[in-house]
Amino acid sequence: MHVFAEEMKRSLRSWLSFTLAISGTLVVFGVFFRTLRADAQLLNDILENFPLEFRAAFGFADVDMATIEGYFAFLLGYITLIGAVFALKQSLTLLSEEGRRKTTDFLLTKPIGRARIFGAKFTAVLVQIVVQNILLWITAFVFVRFILEEPMSPRLMLLMTGSVFFVQLFFVGLGFAVAAAAQKLKSAVPLTLGIVFFFFALQMLHESLRDRKLSFLTPFAYFKGSDLIRNVAYDAAYIAATLIVFAGFSLLAWLIYRKKDFAG
């Protein structure tokens, strides 16, 4: 329990800033919506002028930005991006902490097995993400219902905000596997940004090419706002893909970590 508590304590500052960024983005851009909805037709007309590929790449090709659902779908695309950066950065940071800061000789020589250390770090990241998502959902719900006073379906809102969580799971698995496999990770942030933007670029490419096979390569394509609005449900194939990547990479991370050599 003490390793978990220590990891949580060490993560607190980063968690707070990212959680504020996520919920803050929602609120700040949500406020814009009040102005936008008054001139809804004008907005859609302006956006129509952009080329289709451009609109697709930036996530407003097939949603009506003048409705709260459409606007939310667009906005959540970017909130997901912030969430993905947090999930990957935290996973890389926590599992590589000892190797990076050379505290291996402290923690791993204590009377505690590697399973418990790995478990504590893994749980710490998951708890941080779960709480972050609960706060995101509460913020979204309160904001839409009481500030914007829009009648958005709670189920749709849950699906939309929940997609942030699933994308984060994808990056948690990936992050743990990379951190376990890397001999020495100097700094987590540049690697995080590189990996997340690679997947985001893949998504932009996919939006232009519209190839379903390609879409499985990037979690940003799994939970498209326009699909959620149309089906009011997740695509089971994508949920399966997310869970397989999360479970598979997490397992791989553990298999590497349990036999990893920590040379001085």
């Binding site: 060490r10 800061r101 050379k102 505290t103 000789d105 402290f106 020589t109 001085g264």
Partner: peptide
């Protein structure tokens, strides 16, 4: 340990 590093 030969070289000591702790959580700064």
């Amino acid at each position: 340990p030969a070289e000591v590093y702790y959580y700064d």
